[in-house]
Write a protein that binds this DNA or RNA. Structure first.
Length: 151
RNA sequence: GCCGCAGGCCGCCUUAUCGUCGUUCCAAUUUUUUUGGAAGGGAGGAAAGUCCGGGCACCAUAGGGAAGCAUAGCGGCUAACAGCCGUCGUUAUUUCUGCGAAAGGAGAAAUUUCAGGACUAGUGCAACAGAAAGGAUGUACAGGUAAUGCUGUAGUGAAAUCAGGUAAACUCUAUGCGGUGAAAUGCCACGUAAACCUGUGUCUCGGUUUUUACCGAGUAAGGGUACCCGCCCAAAGCAGGAGGGUAGGCAGAUUGAGCGUGUAGGUAACUACACGUCUAGAUAAAUGAUAAGGUGCCAAAAGUGAUUUUGGUAACAGAACCCGGCUUAUAGGCCUGCAUUUUUU
């Protein structure tokens, strides 16, 4: 874990804007906020399995499917936006990027489930382009719920 | 200055932090590799539709025939084209010139339309009007004959025996077209590996012959390329099963009919030469988030006005082997040309 901890350095202005719950985690130490290839879910078999066997939670507009996968080193995550709801390719891409961003900034919420790792799929079910702030809120609630159930 | 039309160009910017995908360099670990750091780069004019044309790759089927599809004045450009340029004809608009009492019609220029080969090969079709609209022929008057709508005029119509009109009607003529499509294809790794089992499947008649087989004819009739001939396969082909392996890596893949500038040739499209330049390469698919400032647009308020303040908003849209076009979508801005109107001199 040593390589993943960085000294906390934020300006006064930014830290003022942070909410208390998030502020707590960040104040102790800072989880590295990266999202490299090794944390992306790529196997089509696993994704199929997720839809068939995975448990799900829903908080508008995001639905998540997840399965425990303790043999993995990292949590694996994938993001999907159905073509049925969002027609434009540009908007689909954008929502996927925003989902990924929201996950990247909030994945530290899953760090404290010691030993337990998950395979997660995030599915966007809204029919219009979202505000990023709403997405992030929903993401935080879902990750917290997952955390509380398994700790 | 305002508004309109046509053509061309651009199509949000800057900074900071955190991320993300390649490249290069450095350090650590080291066979590969992995991790960290630094530098520099990272979507479009249409990347879209997949409508044409190529490059490139492959094929047991690529040849010939007919069919089908595409193109269509003439000349040029190009790797090629259904594209582009020039030109002739043609459609329409505007302006000018001169003719005329007027209605009108003539010529020239600019822009613009065209599915612009052939109805003297054949077939089909044609509203209204009209006796009659396609091997047609009636009435009135006049003429003529041995006799007859035989001839002329009137009448209908765009057109009445005239080489009529029509090919975004069949058709004919000329030219072109093998098919598939980067999920192609090649290599590496894994694997006993063009391996195993089951089913389907090569017809009928005649002749030669002991039989196999060969020859000929017929049929939709073994399989393959839509069809036929030809050709190829027969240890083939097709379908299923069991078992194994796997959605792996590298190449293809980004230096190219590339881009920029200049000179020369050409009416132009474009071409030649010289110099400079490297500008995305992902693969469950890289460009995002946050903050601040600016820019454009819209709305409201204030002001005679220049303008200021506040709020909102950021068009269409995401590379997927690569090029040349076409078509469609597109907020807003800039430039050029033409025409109208207003003001000033």
């Amino acid at each position: 874990m040593g390589g993943r901890i960085k000294p906390f350095k934020l300006s006064f202005k930014t830290s003022q804007l942070l909410k208390p719950a998030r502020f707590f985690f960040l104040y102790i130490y800072r989880v590295k906020q990266t999202f490299p290839k090794t944390e992306k879910l790529k196997s089509s078999k696993t994704i199929e399995k997720l839809f068939l066997e995975g448990d799900s939670h829903f908080k508008f507009p995001i639905k998540i499917f997840f399965l425990p996968a303790n043999e993995n080193e990292n949590n694996l995550a994938a993001f999907a936006v159905p073509k049925r709801n969002i027609k434009s390719a540009v908007n689909r891409n954008r929502i996927k990027r925003q989902l990924r961003e929201a996950y990247r900034l909030n994945k530290h919420l899953l760090e404290h489930i010691h030993g337990k790792k998950f395979v997660i799929l995030f599915l966007y079910l809204g029919k219009v382009n979202p505000q990023y702030a709403h997405l992030e809120k929903a993401m935080q609630k879902l990750l917290k719920k997952l955390h509380d159930e398994n700790s």
